[in-house]
Computed example of a mutant assay.
Amino acid sequence: MNDVQKTGSDSAERPGAKTSARRADLRARLVAAGRAAVAEGGLQNLKARDLAAAAGCAVGAIYNVFDDLDDLILRIGADTLARLEQGLAAPPGPAPEPAEELLRLACGYFSFARADKALWRALFEHRLAGGRPAPAWYLEDQSRLFALVEAPLARLLPDEPASSRALLARTLFSAVHGVVSLGLEEKLAPMPEAILEAELERLVRAFAAGLTLLPPG
């Protein structure tokens, strides 16, 4: 009797499981198609009809698995953040000096932005419709990147309050991002990559050295 009941239960659950699997597969295909479209031509290249054709679904099916195109763009951004996080992960072995680790992260960020410029740019170009704030899950994805910066800062400034280190991590990221953005977008003047890398090193080393001279926040 138990075997019969178990078999019946399994068959009752199977359709729902198949539906969930199909939805997850469609979501993955749409994110992959969206990522390819953005990589090729930026956010303006993201069109629902083209995405549906690339993913092999009807246009309306997009909105069965995503709230709207903003939701899809956020998922593409989350995928980009995950790739960036993976690229910045610390290599095996003893941790380097904090300043060296901060420099490694800055150079890794520059390398990622240079290699995946359109996807990197999309992270900062996208604005949610109606001025909506980013959802909590997306902010958590961002916070994991800042945590990579906070780790060497914790070794550099062990007496600094955690909240202050979090702000410092965001300040340093903003400075590095500014240099990378101005360099890659050539908004001021063309800058050879070797010079850009040298300026990043100067910035990070000066930032790290200066922090040790300041009283705890």
Rank of each mutant, 00 (worst) to 15 (best):
1 M>S: 12
1 M>L: 10
10 D>M: 11
10 D>Q: 11
24 A>Q: 12
30 L>I: 10
30 L>S: 08
35 R>P: 01
36 A>H: 06
37 A>F: 04
37 A>N: 08
37 A>V: 09
40 E>A: 15
42 G>C: 05
45 N>S: 14
46 L>R: 09
46 L>F: 11
53 A>Q: 14
53 A>N: 10
57 C>T: 10
57 C>A: 15
59 V>I: 09
67 D>A: 13
71 D>T: 09
75 R>G: 02
77 G>D: 03
82 A>H: 01
82 A>F: 00
83 R>E: 15
83 R>W: 00
83 R>I: 04
89 A>S: 15
90 A>T: 09
92 P>D: 11
94 P>S: 11
97 E>D: 15
99 A>V: 09
100 E>D: 15
104 R>A: 14
108 G>R: 05
123 L>Q: 15
123 L>V: 10
130 G>E: 04
135 P>W: 07
135 P>N: 09
136 A>D: 11
137 W>Y: 12
138 Y>G: 06
139 L>P: 00
140 E>F: 01
142 Q>L: 10
143 S>N: 06
144 R>D: 10
145 L>P: 04
147 A>E: 13
150 E>H: 04
152 P>T: 07
155 R>A: 15
156 L>S: 07
156 L>E: 06
156 L>W: 01
163 S>L: 14
166 A>L: 10
168 L>E: 12
168 L>D: 09
169 A>D: 13
170 R>Y: 06
170 R>V: 06
172 L>C: 07
173 F>L: 13
174 S>A: 15
174 S>R: 12
175 A>W: 01
178 G>Q: 02
183 G>R: 04
185 E>P: 01
195 I>W: 03
198 A>Y: 03
201 E>N: 02
208 A>L: 12
209 A>T: 07
210 G>K: 01
210 G>M: 01
